[in-house]
Design a protein around this nucleic acid. Structure first.
Lengths: 211, 211
DNA sequence: TACATTCTTGCACTGCCTGCAAAAAAATCG
DNA sequence: CGATTTTTTTGCAGGCAGTGCAAGAATGTA
């Protein structure tokens, strides 16, 4: 794990350091002065790079604040999910997969905390993050399709892909719900706990008929 | 219906005309030259207003392309939904409410068609549209909460609001699914038909357990 | 007609973002 | 080490987005 960063040459190490410096400068400045009052120039200056270099690393101020896009966990939980060992249904398993995955983080703990605070403070940032999740959605949808191949082998390809996508998008709806609840209540549960909660509520919203 | 535009004075009529002219100029230019190759200057010029005036009407090029935000239908279907007459569950009813509402349109048919073509062509625009839907989501969530007050009178306020939000966000997940299917297949069904389809698939994704 | 209100426009200004080419830094090789 | 190649950083020039302000035009009102 800690060998990832290991000597791939000075160049690579410097690139990572610069990226981190920019992210950190951006996040701290926004915490200090507010999103609207921070310019690329300021961020670059604090990170000790030229404004032009900023754009060699990030496409925008927001991109620097959001950091890297999420990726599938690499600990084998994906394999267990595909094999049907995670959750009694694909949707439920997906919920477990995501809420567990949202716990790990390959970065500085303080940066991570501040980033979350910003997502809480600026809903626009959360929206952007969800937007940036499109690729992740595609990835997840194909994993879900694999799971469905296991759960329902009789389904034809098109139906399976469509169903996988529906499951994925519904799951993202649930994630948004978790987020919304989590962001409103000052410091109640962990986000990942809140996610488990929302996923648990899910079955109740389909069946509950008229009075 | 056609009386909406009726004499509210020259000023108001001109405002509406200008707004329409800008929208139309924007849409047509983007259809002709592609989203990236159209500037505010061009749009303003074709709409016969100054670039400065453009910003008196829209905050950005994208806003002009997307047009007005969606609103709740005014034909009484909301009341029927709240009273539990629409759908056998809140989620199902919400599906009917939305898919029906997406049919009406208070605008020029050609503009409407082109706008949809653009949403199809540029997924970023659809994402933006979903982002702009936040307020609409809030509105819907409170309507859903009313419906829940009817369906499950025993629920306390917090639980009801949370559940209403979950239902709403899941519904938006389904809408995204409908959109995705609709945008991929060249000219299959109506969007609103496609929505009914996706909502119908929904019950199947919760129960389907392991093989 | 005279007055008040609202809308349009030009102007100046800040900030975002990109392409390009020169300089700096790091990797590679003899 | 020194020479060469590759990659990164930086400055510069420039286009486009978006905003505040104040003057002037258009509309509403009496």
């Amino acid at each position: 794990m800690s060998l990832d960063i290991a000597q791939q040459g000075l160049r690579e190490r410097k690139r990572i350091a610069t990226r981190r410096a920019i992210e950190s400068a951006a996040i701290n400045l926004v915490v200090e002065k507010g999103l609207e009052n921070v310019t690329i120039d300021e961020i670059s200056h604090r990170a000790d790079v030229s404004p032009r270099t900023f754009f060699n690393y990030f496409a925008s101020k927001e991109a620097a604040l959001l950091g890297e896009s999420p990726e599938l966990p690499v600990d084998g939980s994906v394999a267990r999910f595909v094999d049907g060992e995670l959750g009694s249904s694909a949707l439920e398993g997906l919920g477990e997969l995501i809420s567990t995955a949202s716990e790990d983080s390959r970065e500085d703990a303080e940066t991570h905390t501040l980033r979350f605070a910003l997502l809480r403070q600026y809903p626009q940032l959360f929206t952007l993050r969800m937007t940036a999740m499109r690729d992740f959605e595609e990835e997840l949808a194909s994993v879900v399709a694999e799971r469905l191949r296991h759960d329902e082998p009789t389904l034809d390809d098109d139906a399976r892909r469509s169903k996988a996508k529906l499951i994925t998008l519904v799951a993202f709806g649930v994630i948004r719900h978790s987020w919304s609840c989590w962001a409103e209540n000052e410091s109640a549960m962990t986000l990942s706990e809140r996610m488990k909660e929302s996923f648990a509520q899910l079955p109740g919203i389909l069946s509950a008929g008229a009075a």
